[in-house]
Amino acid sequence: MQQTAPLILVNESDEPIGTMEKMQAHREGLLHRAFSIFIFNRKRQMLLHQRADEKYHSGGLWTNACCSHPIPGEELIISAQRRLQEEMGFQCPLEEIFSFVYKAELDNNLVEHEFDHVLVGTYEGDIVPNKEEVQDFGYYSVDDIQRLLEKNPEDFTAWFKIAFPKVMDWVFVSGGK
């Protein structure tokens, strides 16, 4: 299911300054609110998914469990839980651990300029991904992910390459709290 609601444009402090249609915001590279969800199992393996080739950008690339944009008027956590269900077919409790701003030129002449809220959760059940969003998925050890990132960074999304080391610091340095 493609998001049809407008994106929330924000300033560098994540204060809303307006809304804009998704594709226009990505063509113009305007800063907008987003979230990235990282899911772990009890073995501390991370759930990755390969974006469907048909996605409007970054098709076929590997990334964290779910990435999207909150809907105007909807709480961030509610939007994240809703999109996790829509994309991966499950829900679990989520906790925001940090946020960051990045800007990356993507394929299809699009620019991703996001104030990205990073959320984490733990999940052990069935995963039933939406085939329009996801073409492959699996849990991977963080060591395997690190090796894959070093060997083939072009196989991963721009935001994942930025967020992954920060999430690893949170998991292993802070003990996940």
Rank of each mutant, 00 (worst) to 15 (best):
Val173Gly: 01
Glu154Arg: 04
Thr4Val: 12
Leu84His: 08
Arg44Phe: 10
Arg147Leu: 12
Gln85Thr: 03
Ala158His: 14
Met168Arg: 15
Glu28Tyr: 11
Gly18Arg: 09
Leu106Gly: 04
Leu31His: 07
Gly29Asp: 01
Val171Asp: 05
Val118Tyr: 03
Glu132Val: 00
Asn11Thr: 11
Ala65Val: 07
Trp170Arg: 03
Lys43Val: 06
Phe160Asp: 00
Asn109Gln: 13
Leu61Gly: 06
Glu114Leu: 01
Pro72Leu: 11
Glu21Gln: 14
Phe100Arg: 08
Tyr123Arg: 06
Gln85Leu: 12
His113Ala: 06
Arg51Lys: 13
Thr4Gln: 13
Glu124Pro: 02
Asn130Tyr: 05
Asp116Met: 15
His113Trp: 01
Val171Asn: 03
Arg82Lys: 10
Val173Met: 14
Ala34Asp: 00
Arg147Gln: 14
Leu48Ser: 02
Ile8Phe: 05
Ile71Lys: 13
Leu119Asn: 08
Val171Tyr: 12
Cys66Ser: 13
Glu132Ala: 01
Leu110Thr: 08
Leu76Gly: 12
Thr63Arg: 02
Gly29Asn: 01
Ser36Asn: 11
Phe38Cys: 00
Phe90Glu: 00
Glu15Ala: 11
Ala34Lys: 07
Val10Glu: 05
Ala104Thr: 07
Gly59Phe: 05
Pro153Gln: 11
Gln2Thr: 07
Trp159Pro: 00
Cys66Asn: 01
Asp107Leu: 07
Leu61Val: 10
